[in-house]
Design a binder for these strands. Structure first.
Lengths: 191, 191, 191, 191
DNA sequence: TATGAATGAGGATTCATTCAT
DNA sequence: AATGAATGAATCCTCATTCAT
């Protein structure tokens, strides 16, 4: 198990480097050599740990998606009312534990590539479904049954839109502010 | 003038080819030769008319943004009340004259690249500002002054989110349905 | 004949443009389009008059070689003694009617290409032989028969060297000065 | 250090290939792939070791210039009288350790390109100055002070001319013969 | 004659990937 | 485990040449 840890640590370090590098130069424009430099390793190591550039992005996204999952669960277990559960899910998406300009950059590039990559598409669908499932569970106790689905989509769309806009030039990313905005949005949307 | 027309026609043909090709393979994965094949021309012509692959994407986006502008204006001139104006702007964004899976694919890739390309970033800001300006003008007559800005952002974010989601695998794109959803969303948001 | 003149004028204009352009950018780096711009014409015209880029350089060299021939003859007819004839030939090579930095640039590039081009090699040999023949004719009356050939080669080598050095960066080209130097050189060489 | 050696060996091998290939096809007409073939490597390696085609020519010339420098020094240390020193410098230029048709071919193409390339121009000036400095040092003790400079230029011009002529079609290159000719030339020139 | 749009073969360069050490 | 030298397929772009007008 101690053995395993070394390898996992290395992978995590490399993934952090991918996030930094991708934010700065875009994943497509990045060479494996550049990523290796960010991570202070060699191209050989990148291939040793991940198998290739494509797999590297997939691994990075799995990492980010896991973080979202963890933060969501942490917040959900503390919530008691349906509305609290709804807020928990939405706030998790903008939790400063991982909502940052860097993550947004990677996320949007992932989105742009997903339609052209089976493994990425799978990840995208997985996350989308998980979030939707969580949201719907809470929403059904808040809005009339026939409005839950549409309402859920509106919320997901809003959240995706925030991620999308956050990575653009000249946009300052502030987790706290985004959480407030999201709460105001929910208040407006749910009467 | 006949000369100019021919050259413009050629440019438009090439841009249509870019949209088709990008939707199918993603812009980054696309080779100039492939685009040329879609357009039934040579790689030389692409460079002759646009100067390079990057400039080609910029030209394509300018084309799409122009279409949005035209459709928006067409709808705006027919609107009389503030709410009608608001609806006009939002409906224009999902007008089937250009809201299609293909456009969404290009749009999202444009978004992913904009932070790393001066010319694309400029286009992105230009469009974002134009839409915001239109929306705010109408919103200020609908909601209290202190809510207009936040409300505007929510609407833009929602629209961006729709574009983003529309290009994903397994999502069917239906302009009419998207327009209806958007109207329902506005109703909910503006009480 | 008037007809012919128009075409000849055009060819001469184009050749002058080639010389200017080659001096500024080197013939290899030059595109036909650039040459056309120097000549204020189109690429089509270049091909119409010369048939291609390679033929253009050959035509240009033929032009320069003709100029040398003409200047040499003009000076030779005025010479009476063997030494005067020798001087005439050498002075012709540095006559400011065509000895200039521009000509030297073209000449040296011609030299560099000649070993790899049949037509250029022929021109090179032709000129070399013509000059040698003229020189030898005079030299044989000046130095002992068994020294004429070696002496001739030395003179030709010196003249070629001057051309070569004249095109280099930082070297000022002055026809009068080069003529003086050449005369001093001959004096030294021929006792 | 073993590492360094291997890499240096690789570089030298590549440079030898450039000389062979350039002599056969001219540097401009040569493709990187062809050079790679001469060197029995890949195009990738060429770029890995030199960074590009231009840098490759510069490296090759630096190599040739170094050879000249080394041969010159070897001969100079053995010379005692001024005239012996003068001869040493001139003989070095035609030493069969590197005076060959191949070297001449490369040299002349270098000369033709130098006026259009900063790095090549620097090399050209460097070598020209070094040879001049060596020659002048010896000449000042042989000819009157006011004649040294002009005499030096005549010698350099002669040597450059020999290089230039040696690469032409139909000229046989013989180091020994060129050395003899040069000695005869010096004898004639220096009374 | 003159033009310049269109072509596409050809070349320099990049970069993911491999593998010997 | 880690490295980075070596590879060569793949791609963008250039440019001589053609040809319809």
């Amino acid at each position: 198990m101690a053995r395993k840890k070394i390898s996992d640590l290395r992978r995590t370090e490399l993934i952090e480097a991918v996030i930094d590098a991708t934010h700065e130069h875009s994943f497509a424009a990045l060479t494996v050599a550049q990523i290796a430099e960010f991570a202070q390793t060699s191209t050989g190591s990148i291939h040793y740990y991940f198998g290739g550039k494509d797999a590297l992005l997939a691994a990075t996204m799995r990492h980010l998606l896991d973080r979202l999952k963890v933060v969501t669960i942490e917040r959900l277990v503390k919530a008691t009312t349906p509305r609290e559960r709804l807020d928990a899910i939405v706030l998790a998406n903008f939790d400063d534990a991982f909502f940052s300009k860097k993550s947004c950059s990677v996320w949007v590039q992932f989105w742009a590539m997903a339609p052209y990559s089976e493994p990425l598409a799978r990840l995208q669908v997985l996350n989308q479904s998980r979030v939707r499932s969580n949201l719907l569970h809470a929403l059904k106790q808040i809005v009339p049954a026939n409005q839950a689905s549409q309402c859920c989509t509106a919320i997901q769309t809003y959240m995706d839109g925030i991620w999308l806009r956050s990575c653009q030039t000249g946009i300052a990313v502030d987790a706290g502010k985004s959480q407030q905005d999201a709460m105001t949005f929910l208040d407006r949307l749910l009467v």
